[in-house]
């Protein structure tokens, strides 16, 4: 898979690149393997989907729906949390996290192991493979989930997608000085997810900072305070790139801090989707063009965009 094309070039009117149009996406029926609680109304679910697990990379997503029935009708998009590997280290299943908010996620919270679901993917461009020195990941609410895979890949402890098959060279060339900081903001402690999956990182290269809106855990305030603190540091303590996923207002704030600090920033958007692969033209977002802006499909032009390519909606 070519992952060098993650939207780093500015968008132009004439040539629209579609880095998230994945020619090897597939539709599968797979079994639910397990479901576990991560936080209040927040669950992680594992699906037996070998081909999808082999192909997907952090920041990409897939669509999921029940095998039968028409209500709910449409699939729902979920970002990869992690792939599950077998004894030989080959990915055999995928895991994603969700927060119960509506009809589909309520139904999902009742899904039991052994039930079949339909998934299609991988979809979207995913985060670019990070090659700087210090990556700052910023997650708001359930938006922290792509950063487990991103951190593993950035620190070279796991590779995803096609790169995992030719992993040795890439892994050995991973910069041993490279660091990751995860800033994770939630409304309050009871919505903070269990972060034990992040325990296996080398603490000299990976750290987590937490904020809650009500001060019940970590920094009392918004996660954007932590972002500003990190970017005011000196030397290698100062991140040289930012990946962000969360509510749009939070992402807009992070983007503006990064712009002021002159640090490149990528945002992973979540817009309402009907199909996930570009057919329906529902999930449009305003992308900056030579002559203003244009609505572009988040699913196949993104969902990860360089912050400067987006024209945020004024709400």
């Amino acid at each position: 898979m070519n992952r060098d094309n993650s939207n780093v070039e500015p968008h132009s009117c004439e040539e629209i690149s579609l880095p998230g149009q994945i020619e090897f996406a597939r539709q599968h029926t797979g079994k639910i393997l397990s479901q576990r609680v991560l936080a209040d109304k927040t669950f992680a679910i594992r699906i037996d989907a070998r081909e999808l697990a082999e192909a997907i990379t952090p920041g990409q997503f897939f669509m999921i729906r029940p095998e039968r029935g028409t209500d709910p009708l449409l699939g729902r998009p979920f970002a990869l949390y992690d792939t599950i590997v077998d004894d030989q280290g080959m990915p055999v299943a995928l895991e994603f996290a969700y927060h119960v908010v509506g009809k589909m996620t309520n139904l999902m919270s009742e899904w039991e192991s052994g039930e079949n679901v339909v998934v299609w993917g991988p979809l979207g461009n995913g985060f670019p493979f990070y090659e700087g020195n210090h990556l700052l990941c910023v997650g708001g609410g359930i938006g922290y989930t792509p950063f487990l895979g991103v951190s593993r890949e950035t620190l070279g402890t796991r590779l995803y997608g096609d790169s995992s098959k030719s992993s040795r060279a890439t892994r050995e060339s991973a910069n041993p000085e490279r660091r990751v900081t995860l800033c994770y903001g939630a409304q309050s402690q009871r919505y903070l997810a269990d972060l034990s999956d992040f325990d296996d990182f080398d603490s000299s290269r990976f750290r987590i900072q937490i904020s809650t809106d009500d001060g019940s855990a970590g920094h009392h305030g918004f996660v954007t305070d932590l972002v500003a603190q990190n970017l005011s540091a000196q030397g290698n303590d100062r991140p040289d790139g930012v990946y962000c996923c969360g509510p749009e207002r939070m992402m807009a704030a992070v983007a503006s801090i990064c712009q002021a600090e002159n640090v490149p920033c990528w945002l992973s958007l979540e817009t309402p989707m009907a199909c996930g692969f570009g057919a329906c033209f529902s999930c449009v977002t305003k992308v900056v063009t030579d002559d203003g802006w244009d609505y572009r499909r988040t699913c196949i032009e993104g969902p990860v965009f360089p912050a400067e390519s987006l024209a945020f909606q004024e709400n």
Partner: peptide
């Protein structure tokens, strides 16, 4: 095209206004 949201799911169906 029209401003988002452009689609919304309804009972066994969907509304669109692309």
């Amino acid at each position: 095209g029209n401003p988002p949201p452009r689609t919304v799911e309804t009972s066994s169906g969907m509304l669109n206004s692309i």
